[in-house]
């Protein structure tokens, strides 16, 4: 992907000019006594520090272009995403970290391998410029959908425990008894993705496409990449939340087809 137009580099001074925008919000906050000044300042500092650190790490990894550095970055990203996915659960699920980690790793690895290896055809596969941002998009979306799925599953099992028990008492297996709740939580997890597919480009230009256009790509190239991204995210979120819901619902059941009510 060669940039056709030259990209305007941003100097420190230009960044400082951008900070004026935050200053404007701080002024509003003071005037309206919103009490958000502190958080806005902390947020701005964090934005600067976190992104600079990430930028430095990425620059180093890009320069080195070694497969093990890339894998380490991917593993770290997966770890953080896993933590975020289970932290949403109202009640901690024993083994939840392993389950979410497994679901996110498997769905991300499968989707990533297909997109990098087959669709885009990146050689070598660990070319950081492609694999890291693409993995980031996949993980970010799978993390959100797994969190939604897990939260909904736990909430539904708690609210509808009598219904599960009624089915068990009628001789259904544990799997059969929780099927309606699994289905509801998977649907809930997929709604943002499906909604996004319906309105993509109409409500908001997707971030990646915007970035690519800013970096000088032709909008037509950017659009094709965006399509790949949309299809890839549909696959990754669907696969990830399905795996997570399947494994997590198993944790709420025993081999003797019992609902472990005390976990709810």
């Amino acid at each position: 992907m060669s940039a056709t137009a030259s990209v305007i580099d941003l100097s420190i001074w230009q960044l400082g000019l951008a900070l004026v925008l935050v200053g404007a919000v701080v002024a509003v906050s003071v005037r309206q006594s919103l009490g958000l000044e502190r958080d806005l300042v902390i947020g701005s500092v964090r934005t600067i520090v976190q992104l600079y650190v990430v930028g430095l790490v990425l620059a180093a990894v890009f320069a080195a272009a070694r497969w093990y550095w890339v894998l380490l970055i991917l593993a770290t990203m997966t770890g953080v995403a896993t933590q975020a996915a289970v932290s949403r659960l109202g009640k901690p699920l024993p083994g939840g970290n392993w389950i979410a980690g497994l679901a996110l790793t498997a769905s991300t690895a499968a989707t990533l391998a297909y997109v990098i290896g087959v669709v885009v055809g990146v050689r070598p596969w660990y070319e950081p410029q492609y694999i890291i941002p693409i993995a980031g998009m996949i993980l970010g979306n799978s993390m959100t959908s797994a969190a939604l799925a897990g939260d909904r599953l736990q909430g539904d099992l708690r609210a509808r425990a009598d219904e599960v028990e009624a089915r068990l008492a009628l001789g259904f297996s544990g799997r059969e008894a929780v099927q309606p709740m699994m289905r509801a939580s998977l649907r809930a997890a997929m709604i943002p993705t499906v909604n996004g597919m319906m309105t993509v480009g109409l409500v908001q230009l997707p971030g990646m496409m915007t970035g690519q256009i800013l970096a000088g790509s032709s909008p037509l190239v950017a659009v094709r990449y965006q399509m790949v991204v949309v299809f890839m995210l549909a696959a990754a979120t669907g696969l990830g939340s399905w795996l997570f819901v399947r494994l997590a619902s198993g944790r709420y059941l025993t081999a003797a087809h019992q609902l472990r009510r005390h976990l709810l």
């Binding site: 068990l168 008492a169 009628l170 001789g171 259904f172 297996s173 003797a256 087809h257 019992q258």
Partner: peptide, 8 residues
Amino acid sequence: FDPRDLRR
């Protein structure tokens, strides 16, 4: 027993 059979 198979729990499902027991519950019937």
